[in-house]
Structure formats: structure tokens, C-alpha cells
Nucleic acid binder design. Sequence first.
DNA 1: AGCGCTTACGTAAGCGCTTACGTACCCTAG
DNA 2: CTAGGGTACGTAAGCGCTTACGTAAGCGCT
Lengths: 344, 344
Amino acid sequence: MPRAGQRPRLVEVAERAGVSLATASRALAGREGVSTEVADRIRRVAHELGYVANPYARTLAGGARSTVGLIVHQVDDPYFSEIAAGVIQLAAEQGLLVQICQSGRDPGYELQQLRHLIAQRVGIILISGSGYDDPRVETEARAELAAFQDHGGRVAAIGRHALGVDAVLPDNEAGGHALATHLMDLGHRRIAVAAGSAGLTTVADRLAGVTSALRQRGLRPDDLTVVHGDFTRGGGRAATEQILNEHPETTAIIALNDAMAIGVLSTLRSRRVPVPAQVSVVGFDDVSVAADLAPSLTTIRLPMAEMGRTALTLALKPRSARPRRRATGHLLVVRDSTGPAPTT
Amino acid sequence: MPRAGQRPRLVEVAERAGVSLATASRALAGREGVSTEVADRIRRVAHELGYVANPYARTLAGGARSTVGLIVHQVDDPYFSEIAAGVIQLAAEQGLLVQICQSGRDPGYELQQLRHLIAQRVGIILISGSGYDDPRVETEARAELAAFQDHGGRVAAIGRHALGVDAVLPDNEAGGHALATHLMDLGHRRIAVAAGSAGLTTVADRLAGVTSALRQRGLRPDDLTVVHGDFTRGGGRAATEQILNEHPETTAIIALNDAMAIGVLSTLRSRRVPVPAQVSVVGFDDVSVAADLAPSLTTIRLPMAEMGRTALTLALKPRSARPRRRATGHLLVVRDSTGPAPTT
DNA sequence: AGCGCTTACGTAAGCGCTTACGTACCCTAG
DNA sequence: CTAGGGTACGTAAGCGCTTACGTAAGCGCT
């Protein structure tokens, strides 16, 4: 009996198709043990009725997980929102819904969000961030995720390793290497780095690439100034102030992500430092505004949307014995923010 | 009996507190009919056990809705991601999870996402967009939402009206008026508008504000060039090309959102048109990069995050007889992209 | 003392689905 | 012709929670 103004239930479909509840369920789940003829009829009736399974009942009864949880630092940071866009798009194609959380770059709060997601019985969790800088939190998160996976949950990390879960990772080190090499090719020798928090694996890796490139060219670590700050525009501004004040001889600033690079450019502009005539600037990520900045930003392009999609793809597969890694490509995009080092 | 490696259930809490399931449920829901003493004991036990209610069971049984659905055009557009950030933050404070969908600016697809959300029994739906430009889709969406609300669902719209639901709305017309007035105060008479799709209410309203301001100053409609495009950076670039080619006398461009303004600035730069010396540019929204562009963008500030929060607040209240409206403030932020009209 | 009313709690009936198990049937082999 | 086995389907037991209803105790009142 259809109930006035209510969504149809599985019983309605079953009745109209003249079968039992179990058969209807099996047919719609595509499970075997139903003759093709009957299954077709059930599917047709379901479609006619506009039947959509109630995900709460389905999950309660132990059925398919229909939602994926996504934890990002900040949705209004383009790096994360572009990743999120990829995740959401693929999820929609698969008929999955995405539950999104922000950790606000606070490891403790991120752990809390993670627990919340687990408590909410979200079946799949994607974490897009840059590693925990608090080892205690890292340990707890790892334990939490392990337990979650043991109960059949699926997890994938984006741009972050050392979490004991599947991960999609850009080659941060190679990217850092490419940036530094590009600058040295242009004659820069006095290079400063505007880095994010020291504890983030992303920062460590990108920085390692930079230093290894310098070493390859015979530059000493002394030639490199590293200022740690926040992976935000504000962090970039603060870092630039410090660099300009303490190392006025700097001719190139490597921001370890584009958000910082935007802050760097903004501060240089207000300080009336011509870019790239006096100081060259590079970023990392290639968020979409990077091309529209003035000057347009030389940076490392990361396929953010694709990284999000890949992570979801990984999480959709059954768990493997050991965590999988997926590398992503990267590309040095040379634009107008870099130029030859000034001849003093 | 606690089951090994499983999350505790309500029964476990009830048993340990020496009460029945019903009492435990009532106590944790904060419902009356439980003595303070017993309620406290139950809450304490629940906390000790790390009990978190299973949202699927809770929803199935007809309890509280624990997730809010949010439909945006594109998560990687700062306007939407800043709104989303507000929604997600407040939702987290309330212990709600946010299901996010992208419509990709396609009304048909948006309707589909809406249906999906409804089919998934999401209890609260927030729509952040700019109205449908397809009247058939609009009608269907309206019907769908009405039925959803009749079943107890809650809906709020952000920056969009005419949907028969609660809405939080910036005063787009006043904003448009303020921008045009600002430019005319600077002596501009040849003004062009880079507008989004003609069907969007946001576009219509902002444009109406612009034209009314011109009329107030005695300018004729002929003095205004309006080019419709996409509410994106690409749309801004295309519009600028057209404006520059067809109306080279233009001294000021009003982009009806910041994304377009970024495209406008980018094209002017590559065309070597000095801003604001030759052409002034204004945007609308004040997305956070606006201040960091070169030149920094004069625009109308909208409290995006707050708009998101307000929408959720509206949706959390019981439905009122007639749709509620909440106005948001707006503020003209003058920066470096506007200056006196060139004296020909 | 007896009545009704309120308060505090327990009992049990679902919510809509999945799935283990049971059953009827047909086919083939002995 | 019967035993054994496979296939297609039905029966019913939950999943973990909310809540309508029932009940017992305590209170004031006549």
C-alpha cells in the first residue's frame, strides 16, 4: 500500500512486482539468486515508483556504505577546495554523498573530526592535509584509523604519508628541487624559503627538494634562508617581512605553497619591491588564481582535482595487505613572477 | 554486554546505568520525564563508555536529523567555498555533518542533486546559488522543495530568492548602486558591466542597482554597456575582450562578482591597459584574494561565512508560516583598482 | 479511605532494510 | 522411482534507536 505523500518503500515495490521483500532487495542490489526475468520486473517497478532505498535503513541493516567523509584543513583555501571539487564530482558520479569537515589546521581538532566521522559510521574517510605535527595526535589518529579499518572502514590520505593508510602523493621533493633549480638557472644565489609549519611532511619534503638542489649546485646551506610560518596568505606576508628585514640580499623567494606565495607577492608590492626585477617569487600547487595574479605566478602544478578523485578511487577498492601509494605528476609552470637575478 | 571491538550501544549504557532503554534514550536526548539524578548517571555512563548514538538507527527510528545537505555551484569558487566554510563551521559546533554537492552551474543537474539529497533523506538542505535561469526547472525545484518541507524537511537558500523557502539575502541592488555611484564620483561616465548569466536573480538585482544609480545621476542607458557571460574568471576575460573591442571609450568596468573581476584585471594586464589609470575595475563579493590582487580590488564586501551560518540557523528553526528573509549587510571596500576617470 | 492526577520509569512496537536459513521445485544420476 | 543437489524464492530475525502506551508509586483532595 502506498502511503499518501510518502516515499515508496521496498515493500511497495515488492508487492507491485508480486515478490517477497527479500527477492526485491536482492534484485535491486544486483545480487544473484534471482531469475533475470523477475529481476527485470522488479527493477522496472522500482523505477516506475521512483523508489530510492532509504540509506539509513540500508546502513543499519549492514548494507552498503553510501557516504564518504572528507576532512580538509579549510574549505576556503583553494588547494583544498580544488581537491574537494574532484572528490565531490567523482562521488556524485558514483551516487555517493560527501560529508565534509574542516580541521582548521589544528591537529587536535582534526582528530576530533575524525572521531566524529567514525562515530557517525561513515564508511569511507578521506583526509586531505599535510600530516600531523603533533606526534601524540599522530599516534592516536593512527590507532583510531587502524581500528576503523579493522571494522571494514576504508581510508585514504591525500598529500600526506606516514598514516598507515592508502595515500595519493605528489612528489613534493622533486617539485621543490625543480623550483630551486629553475631559480638557480636564472642566476639566483641568495634564496629564501617561506615555509609552512615545520612539522608538516609536505613542508619537510618540499624543503628537502630545495636543499638537495642547492647542494647539487654547490651552494652551502648558509645561502638559504628558511622562515617557517603558516601555509596561508598571512603566513606568506609575515615570512616576507622577516626575509626582507633580515636578509635584504635575497633575490628569490620560494613559497612552499601558493597561498603563501600570494602573501609574498602582496607584501613585496606594498613594499614597492619589483617582481621579478628585484626579487623573483615561486609558489607550489598552481591553484587556479595563480595564473591570474599580477605578476602571474611561477609554480609547480599539482593535479588537485585528480588527486581527490584518485584518493576516492583508492578508498573504493577493497583494502590491500599493505597501504597503497599513488604518485601524481607535477609540472614546473614558468610565468611572470620569475626572472633573471639582478646583476648587483 | 559490551561486544569486543565494537562501539557501545544504547543498551550497554542503559544496563550499566541500571535503567531501561527508553529512559536512557530520553535522558541522552534531554527529554523530560527523567529525574535529574538518573539523567546525570546515564550521561556519565555514556561519557565513560564513549557512547555516540548511531545516526542511522536514530534517523530510522524517526529521531533527529543529524546531517545538513549543502548545494553549491562549485566548491572551488571562493564565493561558494567561503559560504561553505561558514556552514561547515557552525554545523560542526552543532554536532551536525554537512553533505556537500556541486551543481556545476547547471540548473538541471542541480535539480538532480536536490532530488538525490531528498531521496537520501537529508533533513536539512541549504542551497547556495543564484537562482535558476530555466523556468521549467525552477518550477520543478519549487514543487520538490515544497513537498520536502511538507514532510518535515527544512530548507534555506543563500543569496537567492523566489524559491518559496527561507533565505538569506544580501542587498544586491544596493551594492550595485554603491559601485556605480563610487565610479561616477570618480568622474566615470563610460561604464561597462561584465555580468553573469542573464537569468540569475543575483545578476538582475546587481544590474538593477547599477542602472538605477546611473539614472539618478542623469546618465542614459546608452552610456552603459552590459555584456553577459559566465560568473567565472573566464567569463570575465571574455567580457573584457568584448568590451575593449566594441567600446574602447570605456573607462570603468563593473564586474558583477569578484571571479569575473579577476578575469577582467587579468585581461587588462595582458592587453597592457593600466588599471586604474586608464580603466577602473570593481568587483562584488570581496572574496579573500581580492585584497591581494594587483591592483587590489575595489569591491562590495559580503559576509559570506556569516551568510552560510545564518542560513543554517534559519534552517535549524521550525518552519514558519511564510518563508523568512534575512538581509545581510554589505560594504563598499575601496582599494587600488579604482581611480579618477582619465581626462581624455 | 478512596479517588484522580502527576511523575518516573519500563515494555514493546516499530522505522525500512539486509541476509541467514528454510522450503518448494526441478533436474540428473543411480 | 528415489536420493541428492542445485536454483529461485519466501520467512523471519535482527540492525540500534525512538516513542506511544502502560504501570506503579506518590501526592493532595474530599
